[in-house]
Design a protein around this nucleic acid. Structure first.
Length: 487
RNA sequence: GCGGGUGUGGUAUAACGGUUAUUAUUCCAGUUUUCCAAACUGGCGACGAGAGUUCGACUCUCUCCACCCGCACCA
């Protein structure tokens, strides 16, 4: 035949020789795997990605059957696998592989004093008034020329006053970014608590306990993965701006004199981490915050931005030099001295903090966006999520060529063997044609398919099909796992 | 929170104030020794929610909800 053979196994060859209609099918479809695979497109729109995410069980709208709830999303079966792999990979790199970084898992609700000391209660409770004509918003305390969050007082002070455009003002309202709830039976002012707006709080309050129990010296780091909550005014753009989200965050406590060098080191580290999990380098850029853009605690702040959906770069990973702001604030508010005595230099100082913090949803989106690929195979287009094998939600799919009982039972054995020896999330699929099943796995980014055919019953060999190259290799069943290890 | 746009099976869509709501695809079952979304047969599955107008509303009106875009917000 005149076909170019690409990674064609002996098995495939035999089939084609034996079955003429199989060959016809390939030709009708433009040659199938006999043709070169051409890159068609790897730019993806928000619409394409959201519908793929829903269609294949990565992300669903929260409470969908009740009409949803703005700013909240649920991860589906494949989404949670991907998300767990990302968390695990982050934990491996930021905690386990770092000799002086330790993990904690803090409570979501903390003593309200913590948020007062950290500046979040003042920083999050902006009293705003609206110009009733232009609809522009102003800080009520700024217009009134006072420093207070007291709504009653501000309303009195602003009575009869006009906006800078000369229009009447509306009522003063507080725009509170923190979710409020109550602890205990009584819902009064004293029982008010907040869902944490960032995870770092618990790290600062546990800073001395961690240092003590791990017998650490500065510099050392404390890392945490957990939920944070922000009552965003308008959640937007799928998972990009949401009201409940996981944060992956580390506070690296260091000497003030080393802060700049450590800051630089962790910046590099984060950048490389993203490359390792498959985020496209050509869609990543650095951005340094300007003076007026920085958070109240930060001395220097850089973002790794990502060009989501082919658009303008937006924040993906923030790395901030928080200086000694937090430890000093908590020292003052709690009355506990959080300074550190350095036995080497015989100096006492309050450590500086370098903080790399990334939202899981944004990491998830950037990985999905980077992995999304459309390729021409013959006349058809296949959608492939080219996840790195380490983070792919499904590592292997076991596919019997037909539903015949003897093939099924052998395939189930292979399935059990792989899942029990590796602990991977793998899948078994015997419905519809083999080509369709390859497409299904391509679409969720499974790096390997193991196909069991009728010859496997005789020679004890199976076919391993690779996602990216579509290459097929024939190997002995006993040897399969060795061929599946992420290269 | 303001302004604009959009809501029909899982996904993508068509039409209409009036029979059983169109089509494709996905999905499921079956046939086929089925290796890259083959074919054939059969099947499940939808008008975002609530009010109102009307003999009758997926269609018209109102309210709400969600999503997208622009502002504002993003400590």
């Amino acid at each position: 035949m005149h076909h170019t053979l690409i990674g064609r196994s002996a098995c495939v060859y035999n089939y084609n020789v034996r079955r003429a209609n199989c060959k016809e099918h390939f030709e009708k479809n433009g040659g199938g795997l006999y043709n070169q695979t051409n890159m068609a497109n790897n730019e993806v729109t928000l619409e394409t990605l959201t519908s793929l995410a829903k269609r294949r069980g990565f992300v669903f709208q929260a409470s969908e059957i009740y009409g949803g709830l703005a700013g909240f999303w649920d991860y589906g079966p494949y989404g949670v696998e991907l998300v767990n792999n990302l968390k695990q990979y982050w934990w491996q790199k930021f905690v386990r592989e770092q000799p002086n970084v330790y993990g904690i898992d803090g409570a979501i609700i903390q003593n309200t004093k913590l948020w007062k000391a950290s500046g979040h209660i003042d920083g999050f409770n902006d009293p705003l008034v609206e110009d009733t004509v232009t609809r522009k918003r102003y800080r009520a305390d700024h217009l009134a020329g006072v420093d207070t969050n007291d709504i009653k007082k501000l309303n009195e002070l602003l009575k009869g006053k006009k906006s800078p455009d000369g229009n009447p003002l509306g009522e003063v309202r507080t725009f509170n970014m923190m979710f409020k709830t109550y602890v205990g039976a009584l819902e009064d002012e004293d029982s008010v608590v907040y869902l944490r707006p960032e995870t770092a709080g618990a790290i600062f309050t546990n800073y001395e306990l961690v240092r003590d129990t791990t017998r650490s010296k500065v510099p050392f780091g404390v890392a945490q993965i957990g939920k944070g909550f922000r009552n965003e005014i308008s959640p937007r753009e799928f998972l990009f701006r949401v009201r409940e989200f996981d944060m992956l965050e580390m506070e690296y406590f260091t000497r003030p004199s080393l802060a700049e060098a450590d800051f630089k080191r962790w910046k590099e580290f984060c950048w490389n981490f993203l490359l390792e999990i498959g985020v496209s380098k050509d869609k990543m850029v650095w951005y340094q915050h300007k003076d007026d853009e920085r958070a109240h605690y930060a001395a220097d702040s850089w973002d790794i931005q990502y060009k989501f959906f082919g658009g303008d770069p937006k924040e993906l990973w923030g790395i901030a030099n928080r200086t000694d702001f937090d430890l000093k604030a908590h020292s003052k508010a709690s009355g506990k001295d959080l300074s550190y005595f350095d036995p080497e230099s015989n100096e006492r100082f309050t450590p500086y903090v370098v903080e790399p913090a990334i939202g899981l949803g944004r990491m998830f989106l950037s990985v999905l966006d980077s992995a999304y690929t459309e390729e021409k195979v013959g006349n058809e287009t296949r959608i492939v999520l080219k996840f790195k094998p380490e983070i792919a939600p499904v590592k292997v799919a076991v596919l019997p060529l037909s539903k015949k009982p003897d093939l099924s039972s052998l395939s189930e054995k292979v399935y059990k063997e792989i899942v029990q020896k590796t602990g991977w999330n793998i899948e078994y699929d015997e419905t519809q044609s083999i080509g369709k099943r390859y497409r299904r796995q391509d679409e969720i980014g499974t790096p390997y398919c193991v196909t069991i055919d009728f010859e496997s019953l005789e020679d004890g060999q199976v076919t391993i099909r690779e996602r990216d190259s579509m290459k097929q290799t024939r190997v002995a069943i006993a040897d399969v796992i060795n061929h599946l290890k992420p290269s």
